[in-house]
Design a binder for these strands. Structure first.
Length: 462
DNA sequence: TCTGGGGTCCTAGGACCC
DNA sequence: TCTGGGGTCCTAGGACCC
């Protein structure tokens, strides 16, 4: 069914409001849905262990870009007292003393393994939403006539197949709402006695309450550190406390987001599965420099390289961008050094999806706002006001004929660039600006190979 | 020496419109 | 004497997620 909406009138606005009210306060009996949540255990680390089985029992950590801080760590690494977000230089001594394996982020590898994992799961359930690189929601509504044991068995079969086919360990949660399903998955990870799957339907009321009473409210999906602190000041410390809070107070004091989370914890589904990933609304590429940068040429080079990646994402999702922005700034941790930060954007007269136009616009912004004498630490680009690319070739005024001809030429050139990148690698041919300087390239001293995506890295058996 | 990056959604307030 | 009640669109800032 296709709904064509040419005119929004007051009845539709009324209908929208009514829908919003329904989503926030579904009447009893309408929320008999069932969700699956699954994610990998220490995903990046598990990917690194895939091709290095000798690391199976050793602590493993994966670092952020530039080898800055720890972004993923195994159970064994957590046992050393380490946490996500700790700077590498502070953790280094402990890691070395305990024979830990340390890796730079290898997104090419993780993306490839993620695809295998999610395709494997998708084949076993009716509908799936890919929520993040290592995480999915599934819709199990109506499956197994709601027989709790059957559903637990299904989750175990999925875990077993992912383990066998992809080699990645996972856990799963099953519940009537997304928030509860994610919480169940958290329990499955925390308490090994559950054997990797927690099914809300299989827990009796007393068990559910005990679990929620033992869950700090900050563990709940949607409750971040700010909200956690504000709740703590009101004496709300556990998930159970939040469930029992006065809904009116939650709504007034914290807004609709937390009100929805509370409803979900109470078992009323407010967040539907979102199977088709909508095109992104903005595309951002930024990186810190390995060492400080003060020359205009180097900044432009960095921005040009980031733009190459941003335009690749832009084109992959079939969009064109009407606004292009740049950002660059000094090191905020160097409190005594002179600081300078720029975040500026330019709205173009049309939407574009070609590297030349967008790079020119970005470089012009850098030239305009660059100031000599600062030690810049980070630079990036962003593309917003995205539109479907097909729309970019429609005339917008009576006098667009010439512009459209230029646009069409640039599009043909861009298509050629895309093809060259596909056949000869993504850095084979790009704008000259990207080569003005190379002395800012990211540090990745501990990078593993890409045996699933690069022929040169393929495993050899001796 | 050394502290990541890429996203989403909501809210409040101002300008403007009928 | 008395000065409405909706809306839209945009931006900046905040909070959250992995």
């Amino acid at each position: 069914m296709k709904i064509v909406c040419e005119k929004i009138d007051s009845r539709m606005i009324f209908a929208c409001k009514k829908m919003k009210a329904l989503i926030l306060n579904p009447p009893a009996g309408t929320s008999a849905r069932l969700f699956l949540h699954m994610d990998a255990n220490a995903f990046y680390c598990s990917c690194e262990r895939l091709f290095r089985p000798e690391l199976r029992r050793r602590p493993v950590v994966v670092l952020s870009n530039n080898d800055g801080c720890i972004v993923a760590l195994t159970r064994e690494a957590k046992a050393l007292g380490l946490k996500r977000g700790v700077p590498y230089f502070k953790a280094r001594a402990v890691l070395e003393a305990n024979g830990a394996a340390v890796f730079s982020s290898n997104y090419e590898l993780y993306q490839s393994i993620s695809g295998r994992m999610q395709r494997t799961i998708a084949a076993m359930i009716p509908a799936m939403e890919s929520y993040s690189i290592d995480e999915i929601f599934g819709d199990l509504t109506g499956l197994g006539q709601g027989n709790a044991q059957d559903l637990t068995d299904l989750a175990q079969r999925i875990r077993g197949r992912v383990r066998q086919w992809v080699g990645i360990p996972t856990c799963a949660g099953i519940a009537p709402t997304k928030t509860l399903a994610k919480l169940c998955d958290h329990y499955a990870k925390t308490y090994p006695a559950f054997d990797g799957v927690v099914n809300w339907l299989a827990l009796d009321e007393a068990r559910r309450e005990r679990a929620m009473a033992a869950t700090p409210v900050g563990e709940v999906w949607g409750v971040g550190s700010r909200t956690e602190a504000a709740l703590a000041a009101m004496g709300v410390e556990t998930a159970l406390d939040l469930v029992r809070m006065d809904p009116g107070l939650v709504r007034r004091r914290f807004g609709v987001v937390l009100a929805r989370t509370q409803r979900e914890l109470q078992g009323a589904s407010c967040m539907p599965l979102q199977p088709d990933a909508a095109p992104r609304q903005q595309i951002v590429r930024t990186r810190s420099f390995a060492s400080a940068v003060d020359s205009l040429e180097t900044l432009i080079a960095a921005v040009s390289v980031h733009m190459t990646d941003a335009v690749r994402s832009l084109r992959r999702q079939g969009s064109a961008a009407r606004t292009v922005g740049v950002l660059f700034h000094t090191d905020p941790f160097q409190e005594k050094a002179p600081q300078h930060g720029v975040l500026e954007s330019q709205r173009l007269e049309r939407a574009y999806a070609d590297l030349l136009t967008l790079t020119q616009a970005a470089a012009a912004l850098v030239r305009r706002f660059y100031r000599k004498g600062f030690a810049y630490r980070k630079a990036g680009v962003f593309l917003t006001d995205l539109e479907p690319r097909a729309q970019a070739f429609l005339p917008e005024t009576l006098f667009d004929g010439e512009k459209l001809a230029v646009l069409a030429r640039r599009e043909r050139m861009q298509e050629t660039l895309d093809e060259i990148a596909l056949r000869f690698g993504k850095r084979a041919l790009t704008t000259a600006a990207a080569f003005l300087s190379r002395d800012w390239i990211m540090r990745r001293d501990l990078l593993s190979p890409c045996p699933t995506t690069n022929w040169d890295d393929i495993l050899r058996v001796n």
